[in-house]
C-alpha cells in the first residue's frame, strides 16, 4: 500500500493527461474527493451510462452510493473491488486515458514534447477570454502594429514587447486618472528642458549612447520621484495617527521688541 505523498505522484500524470482540475491535490483517502473523481470521469471521459442514467452516481452523499459504484465498476470490467480504493482509482484512470487516446489517435500520434508544453500552460479552468487569444496570429500582430502607429510608439521587432510599451503608455497617459491629472495640469504650463541642455555627468564617447543614457537617467529620476512620493504618503498617513504639535508661549519669552 502506498501512503501519503506518493499517492500524488501515482495519479498526477494520469490526472494531468485527463485535464483534471487539480491534479496536484487529489487525495484518494478523502471519500468525497474519491466520489467526485469517479463521477467526473464518468461525466467527462468514460460516458458509460446515458446522462439520465447517471443519477445514482450523481447522488454523492447517498448511503447507496457505494453499491451503485460497485455495480458501475463491474459493468466497466474492473478487476478490483471498491474496497481496494487505490487500485480502483489507478485502474479507472488508466481506463479513461485509454478511452481518451482511442478517441483521438491521430492527434496523440503526432504529439511531441514541444507541442504539449504549450498546451499545458493553463491547466485550471480560466474565465479570462484573453487567455484563449493566439498572440502569434498575424491579425494580432497587425493589430499591435497599427495601435503602435496610432500612438506613435517606435516599432520593435518583438510585437509582445511592443504591446508592453503600448500598455505602459495607455496606463501613464490615457487611463482615467492620467487624463484627470493632465486636465488639472494643463492650466499650468509644463516646464520642459531640451535633452541636449541636460547634463549626463559622464561621457561614453558616443553621441547616440550619451543620448540614450540621458533618457535612462530621466526615466530613473521619474521612478525615484514616484518612490519618494510613496514614502511621503506613508509618513503623512502615520502623522495623521500620531502627530500632535504643541506650543506653549508661557515656557519662553517671545516678542521682546
Amino acid at each position: 500500500m502506498l501512503k501519503g505523498g506518493l499517492q500524488f505522484i501515482m495519479y498526477r500524470r494520469k490526472l494531468l493527461a485527463l485535464d483534471f482540475n487539480q491534479p496536484e491535490n487529489f487525495n484518494v483517502a478523502d471519500e468525497s474527493q474519491f466520489r467526485n473523481l469517479i463521477l467526473w470521469l464518468e461525466d467527462q471521459k468514460i460516458r458509460h451510462y446515458k446522462i439520465e442514467d447517471r443519477a445514482g452516481l450523481r447522488n454523492l452523499s447517498s448511503s447507496d452510493w457505494p453499491k451503485t459504484c460497485e455495480t458501475y465498476l463491474q459493468e466497466l470490467g474492473s478487476p478490483y473491488q471498491l474496497t481496494e480504493k487505490q487500485e480502483v482509482v489507478d485502474w479507472i484512470l488508466g481506463y479513461a486515458v485509454r478511452l481518451e487516446y482511442g478517441d483521438n489517435v491521430e492527434k496523440y500520434k503526432s504529439a511531441s514534447p514541444e507541442s504539449t508544453q504549450q498546451s499545458k500552460q493553463t491547466p485550471g479552468a480560466s474565465s479570462n477570454p484573453l487567455d484563449s487569444l493566439d498572440f502569434d496570429d498575424a491579425d494580432f500582430k497587425a493589430g499591435v502594429a497599427s495601435l503602435a502607429m496610432m500612438l506613435q510608439i517606435p516599432p520593435h521587432p518583438d510585437h509582445l514587447e511592443q504591446l508592453k510599451a503600448i500598455c505602459l503608455l495607455v496606463k501613464d497617459k490615457l487611463s482615467k486618472e492620467a487624463l484627470e491629472n493632465a486636465a488639472k495640469k494643463s492650466t499650468k504650463n509644463i516646464e520642459s528642458i531640451p535633452l541636449d541642455k541636460t547634463e549626463l555627468g559622464f561621457d561614453t564617447g558616443d553621441y547616440i549612447i550619451n543620448e540614450a543614457a540621458k533618457i535612462l537617467r530621466l526615466l530613473h529620476i521619474k521612478d525615484l520621484r514616484d518612490l519618494q512620493s510613496h514614502i511621503n504618503e506613508a509618513i503623512v498617513s502615520v502623522q495623521a495617527l500620531i502627530a500632535n504639535p504643541k506650543t506653549d508661549s508661557r515656557l519662553g519669552k517671545v516678542g521682546k521688541g
Binding site: P245, K246, T247, D248, S249, R250, L251, G252, K253, V254, G255, K256, G257
Partner: peptide, 14 residues
Amino acid sequence: FDHIPVGVGSKGII
C-alpha cells in the same frame, strides 16, 4: 518676532 524665541538666554516654547 512674536513667534520665534530669539536672543541670548531665550527659551523654547515647544
